[in-house]
Design a protein around this nucleic acid. Structure first.
Length: 303
DNA sequence: CCCTGTCAAGTCACG
DNA sequence: CGTGACTTGACAGGG
């Protein structure tokens, strides 16, 4: 099991998601920002490798305005070497990376404009992972989208649109259960018709489910992943006490995470910790995992 | 230098 | 109808 955290490392001062206002777009500004972001990304990955965090979600803001019409630069060519270098590092350290486009990507929207912008954004995400030279296990995770008052039709639209995606996007696409609209069961239904693997967000599942226990959910989601996709992806978080239901914890709840490990440790999966203090909690989780792993081995040795 | 309104993009819930 | 949550800051202009 590899552990990771999303996008930002709080112990480093750099950010790989630096941006600027659309109004101040210029080729110079774009190039220098991308260069700085890529440099920061390699710093983060290098630190992660040293500390044993072998899973990382790359920010969608890595390339500012990547899929926006204002950006006509062939950035894929301009930064090919830098991407390649980072990709080698990932591979050499047996790391896994993923991406999670934000809420603006809605494949099943009723608005064709939103759909085409979403497709362009997905292509950008695939570009990044392709330029890194990552294998098929480097995934792009999205939600199914809106409901628009008719869930059946909305799911059908989602399925149709994933079918017309370019292969280099489709091969990386995975779907994730959300906390209100599309549950694990909905995602499994979409998987059945499309073959898309299902990321299990255990936090969302705890709010939006149909009675499946966490263990059942893990086993169900695991079955949607085939060998080339890599191990099942799990997104993990816990409730921040005293805040509204659904807010992510500020720091890891050791008890809660230990219980997840109990459910997931014997499975083939990688876990993304969506906790606000990022790498700090991920490191604590890693310590915990190592202790548990040792205990498991020991007890197996005895029995 | 600090403050703060606003930022490319969507959907839904709520008051 | 307008605003906040999701997640999440931080850009950039004005004082």
């Amino acid at each position: 099991m590899r552990l990771g955290y999303p996008c930002i490392n709080l112990s480093l001062s750099c950010r790989s998601s630096k941006t600027f206002r659309l109004a101040s777009f210029s080729e110079e500004r774009f190039r220098s920002t991308v260069m700085a972001n890529l440099r920061c990304l390699s710093e983060i990955l290098s630190l992660n490798a040293t500390s044993g965090l072998l899973f990382f979600r790359i920010t969608s803001d890595l390339i500012p305005f990547a899929s926006h019409p204002v950006n006509t630069l062939p950035w894929q060519d301009e930064f090919r070497t830098e991407f390649k270098r980072i990709g080698f590092f990932i591979k050499n350290n047996r790391m896994r990376v993923s991406m999670h486009p934000d809420q603006f990507v809605v494949l099943n929207s009723l608005d064709e404009g939103i759909v085409s912008r979403s497709v362009a954004e997905l292509l950008y995400h695939a570009d990044v992972l392709d330029l890194l030279g990552t294998g098929k296990d480097a995934k792009i995770q999205i939600h199914i989208g809106g409901v628009y008052g008719d869930k059946v039709a909305s799911i059908e639209r989602f399925i149709e649109r994933t079918r017309s995606l370019q292969l280099r996007v489709a091969r990386r696409l995975v779907i994730e259960n959300d906390d209100r609209l599309y549950s694990l069961r909905d995602c499994l239904g979409v998987h059945k018709k499309t073959g898309l693997p299902v990321v299990l967000d255990v936090f969302h599942h705890s709010w939006n489910h149909h009675g499946e226990s966490m263990r059942e959910a893990i086993l169900l989601a695991e079955k949607t992943w085939h060998k080339p996709d890599g191990p099942l992806l799990i997104d993990y978080s816990s409730q921040e006490k005293g805040r509204r239901p659904g807010s992510h914890a500020g720091t890891i709840d050791i008890r809660h995470f230990t219980s997840l490990l109990g459910q997931a440790m014997d499975r083939n999966c990688d876990v993304m910790l969506e906790i606000k203090d990022k790498d700090r909690s991920a490191l604590r989780a890693l310590k915990l995992l190592r202790v548990q792993g040792t205990e498991r081995k020991t007890s197996r040795g005895i029995t």
